[in-house]
Simulated scan of single mutants.
Amino acid sequence: MTVLRDDTLSAAFDHAARTYDRLVAANPGYHAHLRRSARRLRLPRGGAGLRLLDLGCGTGASTAALRHAAPLAEIVAVDASAGMLAQAEAKPWPPGVTFVHAPAEHLAQAGVKGPFDAVFAAYLFRNVADPDTVLHQVRALLAPRGRLAVHEYTLSGRLTDRLVWTAVCKAVVQPAGTLTGDGPLYRHLFHSVADFDTADAFADRTRRAGFSGVRVLPMPGWQTGIVHTFLASADDAAADAR
């Protein structure tokens, strides 16, 4: 099994940063699905007056999706990989979007402080060493009744979905990653999904972190049963239960 953690994983993302956008663009629905998850936050007034956190922004695809859903919001985008963050920062952004280099576990040390009206986290939680700690930190950063949307590869638990994920990775994702010299990273990404929570298990994990109103919504296409949006709220009842 190839599972990378912490500095090793960040270094692998650094190395893959220049080719990452090109590879994910070949994934049908990749950007559309990110936009769908961001829209599911249902941020009012185009985000006017809101402060949003894009946690694990990578090369900025999730930031662009969040900006599309809330064009008037202030967005703080954070990633642990300096290489991925450099690719994100090099793209054209309007005022109100800022980038911070920091691991999800050490936001306060990097000066990232709440409250945020919403947090968007795409492809993050299966790549952190302690997802429970990160979920609790996210909960603490949210304003009362703040919203969380997690966009993540989390298998449904059905054998057919696991077989589809395995086939796509073995036939397409891993060979493409190997050609770019990033085989270890893409092998890690396969196992990070196969060995992570099912969709129901991650929903339960989110509830244990103090969130309420947790919902799990699917994606269309071949990703049905493989990619989900998790929506949750940091309302007062959740705060009282902590």
Rank of each mutant, 00 (worst) to 15 (best):
L135T: 02
R22E: 13
D204T: 05
A32E: 14
R139I: 03
A203D: 01
L179M: 14
V76H: 01
V164H: 03
I226N: 00
Q174C: 14
V138L: 12
A69D: 01
A25F: 00
A143G: 05
A86N: 09
C169V: 13
A80H: 07
A129K: 00
D235N: 06
L55W: 04
A16G: 03
L50E: 11
L124K: 15
V24W: 12
H188P: 01
V172N: 02
L179G: 10
P131Y: 06
T19N: 11
G60I: 06
R5N: 05
T229W: 00
P131I: 04
D240E: 13
A73F: 09
A199H: 05
L9T: 04
H101L: 15
L163E: 07
G225P: 03
D240G: 07
T8H: 06
A65F: 07
Y30N: 13
L55R: 02
Q87N: 08
A82N: 06
H33E: 14
K113V: 14
A167Y: 12
V172C: 12
K170Y: 13
C169N: 14
A88Y: 00
T206A: 03
R39I: 12
K170P: 00
L72A: 14
V76R: 10
A104G: 02
H68N: 12
A86E: 10
A108E: 08
G213C: 00
A69P: 01
F211P: 01
F120C: 10
P92M: 08
A88L: 05
M84A: 04
A108Y: 00
K170T: 11
D236Q: 08
